Structures are given as structure tokens and as C-alpha cells.
Amino acid sequence: MTDTLVRRPYTPKVAVERLRQGDVGAWPVVGGLIAIAIVFSTLNDRFLSPENLTNLVLQMAATGTIALGIIMVLLLGEIDLSAGSVSGLCATIMTIVHVKQGWNPLLAILLALAVGAAIGFLHGLMLTKLRMPSFVVTLAGLMGWLGLLLYLLRQGGTINLPFTGFISKLSDTWLPGWLAWTLAAGLVAVSAGASLVVRRLRLAAGLPVTPLWWSLAKAGGLAVLLAAAVTVMSADRGVPLLLIIFGALVVLLDLMLRHTTFGRHLYAVGGNAEAARRAGINVTRIRILAFMLASTLTAAGGILAASRLSAVNQGSGGSDILLMAIATAVIGGTSLFGGRGRAYDALLGVLVIQAISNGMYLLSVDSSVRFMVTAAVLALAVAIDSLARRGAAR
């Protein structure tokens, strides 16, 4: 069994063991981000400016949220090609019932999320009950849900959201400085407190624990990162609400994956479905729930995208959104082969993707080059994943 399944504490010793096995973790992504920052800031001094970094954060929220959904199915060793269409369809349904039918915006958002969950439930049933490959199920979903979106928008093609309405304000709300610093301090305190509580419980149970200095070092590192982020964004318009929403989703999903029965079972099914079944895990239930959660997160990403655009149209959820979401998950470190990945992979991956796109935009580089560079980074991430699996097997 892997370290993830037996829940060994992550210590420097464990990190060295994983490196020897070929599992490099998130270090290549972190190194890549540092290299990207150095290269683009050298070529254009606006890249690391507060205004540009704040814009980068706004750009990554929707794609990153959809990537969280992609991670859920990748952990099973499956794929979801319908994510883009589902995000556009759910955002369109939300906009229609809010603008055309006069629904309360919160109810419209809840309806969109419920539609996403229902679509995921249907995909999960087709996968588990009809034994259809996820590739075929979601490929059909890609075309079918896109067709439904076009049908709903057939009369006008575009529906605008009120610029001063609640939904549009999601992407145009900035936290005051005192609140941003309070949230950052609270997150550090909760993270440190949770580590100490887990350490005490493991000691009481006679299990190996993370050294105290390592827990404190991680809390200190988190404090430095959050302080830097708040300082930079406060120099512009402030910390955007979109970042808080995306960050909260990442943290909640990470807690669910690491500290709930469903999360442990999800890793087990992705690692070896037959072994999980023999261990008494309801594999069908786990797969259906994973697809439901994936489509719900995809719907949330569509809502955030519609909020930033203040409209939905026939291109909602289209273009390269699906490809970028899948690339985000894989580049962040989630394995295409199932059983390995974290919620924070979406955050790391979307930072890489958006930083590359943003830097090339500042340099006025043609979009064709951007696609080729992104493809090269994706291929490198998959190669690292394959080498990690080969090393683990040895």
C-alpha cells in the first residue's frame, strides 16, 4: 500500500524515501513556477507587478475550480471530457432562471449546482451499471450537453447578467485589508492547530508522528506565503473574493480527501479497484459519488466564469477550457493512472498554466506558441508521472 493509504506522516525522511522511489511530488511544479517568474519578470517588469498578479488570480479561479472536478475522476483512473460543456450548461441554466424567470440569485446558483450533480450521477450510472468506458460516456456528454446549451440559447445567443447583481459581484468584490489579514492569520492558526491535534492523537494511538519542528516550519512557510500574497494584492485593489472562494474549495476538498472515509476509499479504488472491492469497499458507490462531485465542481467553475464575464453565450464552457482544466490537474501532479493526487494540485497547476499564458500575453506572443509551450509542459508532467510510477513499481 502507498503512503497515502496508510497515512504515514509526511516528514523529511519520508520525503527522501519518496524521492529515491522516483516520486518527486510537487517539487518540479514549484521549481517550474520559480523559473517562470524569473524568466517573465526579466523579459517584462510588469509580470510581478501587483496589478498583473491580481489579474492572474482572477483568471485562474474558474479554470482551477473545474480542474478540482477533473482531479476527482482522475483519482479513479477515469476521465471526464464533458467538463467544459457541463460548466457552460449549468451557468446558462443559472442565468436563464435568474434573468428571464426572476429567480433569487442564490436559488439560481443552487439549481445550477444541482443540475451539475444530476449530470454527474447520470455519468456515474452509465459507467458503473452499463459498463461504458468513461471516455465514451463523457465524450457523449460533451456533445449532448453542448447541444442542450445551444438549444437553450437559440433565440438570443447571449444573456447578460446584471452588472450590479449578486452573481456579477462575485468577481468584482475585494476584501478590505483588515479582513484579508485576519483570514490569513486565521488560516495559519487553524493549520498549525490541526497539525498539533493530529500529532497528539497519533501519539496517543502509538502511531509515528511528524516532528514538532517540521510542523512549525510548515506553518511558518504558510504564513510567509500568505503574508506575501496579501501584501502584493493589497498594493493593487485588494484580495479578490474569487480567490477566497477557490481557496476555500481547495482546502475543503483536501480535508475531505485526507480525513474522511470517502476520501480514503476514493484513493483505494483508484489505486486498485479489485483490491478495494475485496476489502469491502462499495466501488460502484464511490465511482458514482466521485462523478457527482466532479460535475458539481465543474458547475461551480462555470458559475465563476459567468460571474467574471457577466454573461453567458454559445461559447460558454467551450474554446480551450476543458483542455486547460485537464492540463491543470495533470501538471499540478495528479496521476492519469489513478490513486495519486491532491486538491492542491489544481492550485499549483493553474498557477503554472495561467502564469505561462499571462507572461506570453504581456510579451505579445502569438497564441500558437502558447499552446505549444503548454503542450510541452503537459508532456513533461506526464513523463515525470510515468517515471514516478515505474520507480514505485521497482
Rank of each mutant, 00 (worst) to 15 (best):
V6E: 11
P9L: 08
Y10K: 05
E17W: 05
R18M: 14
L19R: 13
L19I: 12
V24W: 15
G25Q: 05
P28N: 07
I38C: 09
S41Q: 12
T42R: 08
L53G: 03
L53H: 00
L56W: 08
L56K: 07
M60S: 10
A62F: 12
G64V: 09
I70A: 14
L75R: 02
L75P: 03
L76M: 04
G77Q: 01
S82K: 00
A83M: 10
V86W: 00
C90P: 02
I93D: 01
T95R: 00
T95I: 08
I96A: 05
H98I: 05
V99Y: 10
P105D: 01
P105I: 02
L106T: 12
L107N: 11
A112L: 04
A112N: 05
A112S: 14
G120P: 02
L127M: 12
K129V: 12
L130S: 07
P133G: 08
M143E: 11
G144D: 04
W145Y: 15
L146S: 13
G147K: 03
L149K: 13
L150V: 08
Y151H: 13
L152Q: 10
G157K: 05
L161V: 10
T164P: 06
G165F: 06
I167D: 00
S171T: 04
L175W: 03
W178E: 13
L187F: 15
A192F: 14
V197L: 14
R199I: 06
P208W: 13
V209P: 01
T210E: 15
L212W: 11
A217Q: 10
K218V: 12
K218W: 06
L222Q: 14
L225P: 00
A227E: 08
V230W: 07
V230S: 07
L241R: 08
I244H: 08
I244G: 09
I245P: 01
G247H: 04
L252W: 11
R258N: 11
T260H: 12
H265T: 01
H265P: 03
L266C: 07
N272E: 10
A273Q: 08
A276R: 01
R277Q: 15
R277D: 11
R278G: 05
A279F: 03
G280T: 07
I281G: 02
R285K: 14
F291E: 04
G301A: 04
S307T: 05
S310E: 07
N313Y: 00
Q314G: 14
Q314Y: 06
G317D: 00
G317C: 02
D320W: 10
M324F: 11
M324S: 10
A325W: 10
A329I: 00
A329F: 01
V330E: 00
F337Y: 11
D345K: 00
L348S: 07
V352W: 09
Q354G: 12
A355Y: 06
I356Q: 07
I356A: 06
N358Y: 03
M360Y: 09
Y361L: 13
L363M: 15
F371K: 11
A379M: 13
D385I: 03
D385T: 06
L387K: 14
A388P: 00
R390H: 05
G391A: 12
A392Q: 15
A393K: 14
A393H: 12
